[in-house]
Amino acid sequence: MPSILGEDFTVKFWGVRGLIPTPTSNTRRYGGNTACVEMYVAGQSLIFDGGTGLRILGKNWQELHKNLEAHLFFTNSQSNRIQGFPFFAPAFMAENCFHIYGNAASNGASIKQCLCDQMLQPHFPYPLQVMQSDLQFYNLTPGKEIELKDVTVQTALINKAQRSIGYRINWNKYSVAYVTDLHQTIDAEDKERILHIIKDVDLLIANATYTPPTANNHECAEFLWEIPVQLSHTANVKRLVISHHHPDDHDEFLDHIQEQVKSAFHNTILASEGMTLAVNK
């Protein structure tokens, strides 16, 4: 097992920013790396998304000085979900093994093809084939379940436009949902699949937009985080974590938003880099 977080089922956030890395003095507390979440459950490490936070996770794992095996799940193949993969140092070590899962992109490309393409010249100096670890790729069909010993990973297509997958991780009587491509408006078909995968979970990790995408201010920002709050109420979610913060949203503004969201759903927290949560407590 590559990481010991101290509990049977824990979640650690290595990257919580959306769209693009934002390493500024105003984002130090919440963090500027793009999406990467590690779940340590029943002796196994599961990684969700490979944004620039994956590089930091990889550096941490190298300090363990042991052979590594882990499962890496991608929600989609957009740049902010895969851009850390070329810098994931453990993938260059021959003694390691990584199982990589992803849905076909909107152009039909597999997750392996998408990861390969971003490592071709002129984008990156070394091709994926330079990685010496055992990389095993799995093409996911939304709705499929993956059995990892005592852990079950459910999948669902939660955003048709982006071909994005949501995940539900079940172990023992505990569950976590990772659903990070919620749109400002959700059609009935997508909503049904989302509610199915998040129903009664102990922890829901979701995205929310705080900044109107066509404006340079925070007017009406509260209306843009209502979607995950409404879904949490409807699905009887026990705890909500909002991640994928907009690059323009600085620490003080996120503090303000956290207070606003907690007034609507009390057991809510905004994700920050390095934050670790115990699910089975």
Rank of each mutant, 00 (worst) to 15 (best):
A188L: 10
N172G: 12
N216Y: 11
N172F: 10
P142D: 06
V229A: 07
L182W: 04
A221N: 08
L120H: 04
I146P: 05
V179M: 01
N139I: 10
N236R: 13
M131V: 03
Q118H: 03
E219T: 12
I111C: 04
H245M: 13
I205E: 00
V153Y: 01
E189H: 10
A156I: 02
T180P: 00
Q113P: 06
Y178K: 04
K149H: 13
V179G: 00
A206K: 00
Q132I: 06
V151C: 08
D117I: 03
Q154Y: 09
K144A: 14
L140M: 15
I194N: 02
T152E: 03
P212Q: 11
T155Q: 10
C114W: 00
I158F: 00
P213H: 08
V153D: 01
L120G: 00
T155Y: 09
A177D: 03
D187G: 09
P228N: 03
I186L: 10
A161W: 06
D134W: 08
F223V: 04
N217A: 11
K173V: 14
S243N: 08
V241H: 01
R168D: 03
T180D: 01
S175Q: 05
H244A: 09
F223C: 08
P127G: 08
S175K: 00
V237W: 03
T214P: 01
R168P: 03
R193Q: 14
P213T: 13
E189Q: 13
S164D: 05
Q230W: 02
A206T: 06
